[in-house]
Design a binder for these strands. Structure first.
Lengths: 291, 291
DNA sequence: TATCTAGTATCGTATTTTAATACAAGTTCG
DNA sequence: CGAACTTGTATTAAAATACGATACTAGATA
């Protein structure tokens, strides 16, 4: 009987007990994690005031959370300059994920093979909300890039890997994701309207791979194919990105798209134990001719 | 006037206002971070009760912190089984470190070169307390290992990389680190007593590299050389580990030790801008010899 | 030397977390 | 098949905890 009372009736939202307004939500933890986000490649060493500014915390809060992380070994401090830096211990946090993710270790051999046969950098990405996250990467000999790319989150709607995953989700789910994405035009060639995006997803379903030309990075062509879990849900994508300086669109479709598709299929099989493809993928080109 | 009262006088420690007993220490943040540590390769999906048990938190606390991390996107939850998993977003945390660490990106080209000429896996490690942390790794063609090794913390006292760093620290500091290490014999060949360890550090100083044979991993030989920062402090190490099945001790010393040393020197130069070696590396004793 | 600015320490207060408990939903066992 | 678990979720009263204003210290600036 003690439910919604008098006053609550006047308000549009009755009580609000969900999400971060729940009494279960611990604000201190959120604030503490914000400290980590203050650091990036352009802000490698920060002083207390800078941390406070970057996180939006006041001086006292920044002091307390910084102190706590320092005591726990996640932060180092230069006693002279008072600059704080992230300590190597934070790597433990991030790599804990890779250790818990069965996908990465199962996929790695296939990614290596794909990198070898394509002679290009091959990425493994997962969907996280409206973003795509790089969880593994096998660099080619062409670019001697440092693997700081891992962990990077980029918007799914304008990446080949994102579209490869979205295309094989239930239609409403994909639409919902697209709609709540903040769709920015990065290059001028970026497709930002929902309807055209949904159309391109149809194409992805038809061909079995997604293709993006300069939609996020200028001068870059990217192909991707979806990976399915045991429940045949698209959970990740194999993606190969190449510079237009070295590749034409048709060469990518002819040479790289099949590699992406076959690698993704192999990983799907390894992941779920299914020897056959998910039905959705059938129409495409692969080895066993469809229908 | 309202200071130390009656009862306090009886206690040996007056007030205690340091470390995690400081009023600045936010316990909630510590507890929240414990949640992450509950997950590893053998505990990939956990239920609430299991998290509570693994972290030592009670049910309510586990519920609150889990809920918070879930809302923030660091945790995923299977609505059916109620299993929690780490979300890819945690990668952002860990890789934030690599992006802030200038060492990694500067070292990478040299590590690649070393991997090429040695045809073995080359690691870059940093010291964090009594442990060594793997911050970069260039795999050879021999072992197709997944790079879950990154971020791993291993005890410095029994690793070549750890000894390479400790050997060039001020003597008391090295001794202190060794003494507070929990020195376990992993293989039977592990040196655990402080005095012999200090003796081996002398040898490292003399030769410029550290060599460990089966001290942590059975069947493995490991060489390492120290990297110095602009202040000529040893901050990291280049390390090459190889199986005894393919390598003899003398071959490692003859072929790999020079590569480790030269790579480490090149990185030291790149790091601090010094064209010459730190004097410490020359043969042994530090500039001001102590008593 | 005076005046900043930034880091550190203190402390009363009330906001937040806490932990006990009640409730719901699903499992196991007699 | 229902009783007695176990486990997840929601609610609360109580107080411990985190808060943030402020004072203090030290170094930089002018």
């Amino acid at each position: 009987m003690p439910q919604n009372h008098n006053i609550a009736a006047a308000l549009p939202a009755p009580v609000r007990r969900t999400g971060r307004d729940s009494p279960l939500f611990v604000g201190s933890l959120e604030k503490g994690l914000k400290i980590f986000q203050a650091f990036d490649d352009t802000h490698r060493a920060l002083r207390l005031t800078e941390i406070a500014h970057a996180t939006g915390l006041d001086k006292s809060a920044a002091q307390r959370f910084t102190h706590t992380l320092y005591e726990l070994g996640y932060l180092r401090k230069d006693p002279k300059t008072k600059h704080y830096r992230l300590a190597p211990k934070v790597l433990e946090l991030g790599f804990a994920y890779l250790r818990t993710d069965t996908l990465v270790e199962r996929a790695m051999p296939y990614l290596l093979e794909a990198a070898k046969s394509s002679e290009e950098t091959v990425n493994l990405t997962e969907l996280d909300g409206t973003n795509v996250v790089y969880v593994a990467r096998v660099p080619s000999r062409h670019q001697v890039t440092v693997d700081v790319v891992l962990g990077t989150q980029l918007p799914a709607y304008c990446l080949a890997s994102g579209r490869a995953i979205l295309a094989f989700q239930p239609a409403e789910q994909a639409r919902a994701t697209l709609e709540r994405s903040e769709r920015v035009s990065y290059t001028g060639r970026t497709v930002t309207a929902v309807e055209p995006l949904l159309t391109s997803l149809n194409e992805v379903r038809r061909t079995g791979y997604a293709l993006c030309v300069e939609e996020y990075t200028p001068g870059e062509i990217s192909v991707a194919a979806p990976i399915f879990d045991f429940a045949r849900q698209p959970i990740a994508a194999v993606n190969i990105s190449v510079p237009m300086a070295r590749w034409t669109l048709s060469a990518v479709e002819r040479r790289l798209a099949p590699i992406a598709i076959e690698t993704a299929q192999a990983i799907s099989r390894a992941e779920g134990g299914h020897a056959t493809l998910p039905p959705l993928l059938r129409n495409a080109p692969p080895k066993h001719r469809a229908r």
